[in-house]
């Protein structure tokens, strides 16, 4: 049913550290790999080796440039996938009941056998977290690797979403954000984790940790600077003579 549960026992989700992410896209690839071979319809590509390749992805990494009034400019890599919102607008608009939020852990899923591919849930999502698969005609979205996290056939260390397991920088964390004592909740409290588009009223479960300010590190970057001093503006001695001679030519 597309009625949202009044509350969920757990709020499983991701915490993404924008300070640590290096923008390598490994999470994008591992997500595509796992979700093409496992749960639901594969994530198709169209014209994959041609001139105009396109495909379905559940996780995409944007990059943004920030130029603060003071201090150096920053480049922030920004991975984006489903935020498993508490007030998920994508669920309530679904006419068939294919879109649902699980009462037990808060994961938002699509029952692909009931999806008619009308696309309205993707219209309702402000984050662009849902993509209609071009070949299957059904809506695809992050499942939080529901087929990994409870999978007892996998070694315990692998019972995490593929993106979290693969991240070489440790920029992605998975856990219960409904439990204030969980590691992820502590991390969010400590680093000032934030919601994306809070004004849309979706109450996202996934949180983003803002990049740490870089201003106070400006000195650090200058260790080699003395060796790279620019050429003197008004040369004296031989260089001064050369400068004047060249000027006269």
């Amino acid at each position: 049913m597309t009625e949202l549960p009044a509350s969920t026992q757990k709020k499983l989700g991701l915490v993404i550290d924008l300070d640590t992410c290096v923008g390598c896209h490994a999470c994008v690839i591992s997500c595509k790999g796992w979700n093409t071979e496992n749960y639901g319809a594969p994530l198709s590509d169209v014209d994959a080796y041609g001139a105009d390749p396109a495909g379905t992805f559940l996780n995409r990494v944007h990059s943004y440039e920030i130029t603060p009034a003071e201090g150096p400019a920053q480049l922030v890599h920004f991975p984006k996938s489903c935020l498993h919102c508490e007030d998920a607008p994508c669920v309530t608009v679904c006419p068939t009941g294919a879109s649902y939020k699980r009462q037990e852990d808060g994961i938002v899923l699509v029952n692909e056998t009931a999806c008619i591919g009308c696309g309205l849930c993707a219209w309702a999502c402000p984050y662009g977290a849902r993509e209609l698969d071009a070949l299957e005609g059904v809506m695809k979205k992050c499942t939080l690797c529901v087929d990994r996290i409870y999978n007892e056939n996998l070694p315990e260390v692998d019972r995490q979403p593929a993106c979290v397991r693969t991240c070489p920088a440790g920029a992605r964390h998975f856990g219960d954000l409904g439990d204030p004592d969980s590691d992820v909740s502590k991390l969010v409290a400590e680093r000032g984790g934030m919601d994306l588009m809070p004004e849309q009223g979706t109450k996202p479960v996934n949180k983003y940790l803002p990049p740490r300010p870089k201003q106070d590190r400006a000195e650090e970057f200058d260790i080699l600077a003395p060796f790279l001093e620019p050429v003197a503006e008004d040369p004296k001695g031989f260089l001064g003579w050369l400068d004047k001679a060249l000027e006269r030519l």
Binding site: L18, D52, Y64, P68, F78
Partner: peptide, 30 residues
């Protein structure tokens, strides 16, 4: 873009690189 990313303030944040070189469903649809 500032509320969408939680970064910066309007005017000092700019989309630097899209996630993919090609197009996608989101760009075509929205």
């Amino acid at each position: 873009l500032a509320t969408a990313t939680g970064l910066g303030t309007p005017g000092n944040i700019r989309a630097f690189e899209p996630p993919h070189t090609g197009t996608n469903y989101l760009l075509k649809e929205f």
